[in-house]
Amino acid sequence: MAFVVGMLIKTAAVPIVVAVVVTWLLHRLERLKPHAATLGVACGFIAGWFFQEFSVWFPVRYLDWFPAAALILALLPRVSPITAAWLLVPAFPKMVPPRLWAVGLLTVSTYGLAWFLNKATDKIQQRVIVGVFMATGTACSLVLLQSFSLKFAQIAGLLTASLTAALLSANKPYGNAKGLPFLFIGLMCNLMFIGYANTSSDVPTWCFALPLVAPLVLLWNPGSKKLQAVRYALVVTILMVAVIPALLVHPPWEAEH
């Protein structure tokens, strides 16, 4: 377990530094200011990706397209979900659902979730949205780890760590993270599907999907502080409901190989 924690910390250092630097630089350009954090997060993720032992310069397999998908989702958020799904959904011989169905499902899910969340960013402080995304990303990483893939957990960790740039920069609604929901939801939806399609573990299928529903709670934007606390508690509850069964199925406190 200590090794896993150490690996995830190592996975965080490069994306955080690159994301923060890129965001800071782009924030100074008036034209790119609204997108500075989104582009910074994408750059942090891509830089962290190429720092890992599993990266290749020229994509061969479906997994190798993550950096390209991140770039497309950051630069062309409104038309990118189908492209990202097309690049990332694998073509396994006996995959359920079949590839075309999976591409369609992920496109609709990504576009639907991201579109609603993008609307919410008009009214909610940027740090709240990014904080919820980081909690969601952490939950996704834990589920993927429990599904027996350290690699997929690392990828989720890269994206979560990169979000630090958006957390540290502008706090007002829409700050400088325009399009961030498309980037985060687009990558994480596809990654969780990949994790589900690859796993031989007993982690329930719904554990792979449920974390991505948690950010939708942000669409409920109550005025009172009491109800806002309830809102955050609801987000945490949804994430816990997704993670705890995955932990119980293969308890990490049992002997490791």
């Binding site: 397999r61 396994f92 011989p93 006996k94 893939s149 997929f152 690859n198 796993t199 031989s200 190989h257």
Partner: peptide, 27 residues
Amino acid sequence: VDSLFSDQDKLTGHLKNEDFFSVKEFP
């Protein structure tokens, strides 16, 4: 490849996944 076995369930699952054999992709 899906018939892979070992003396630990966790190890078996890890070996079948993306980190090693990627059994769903290369059966």
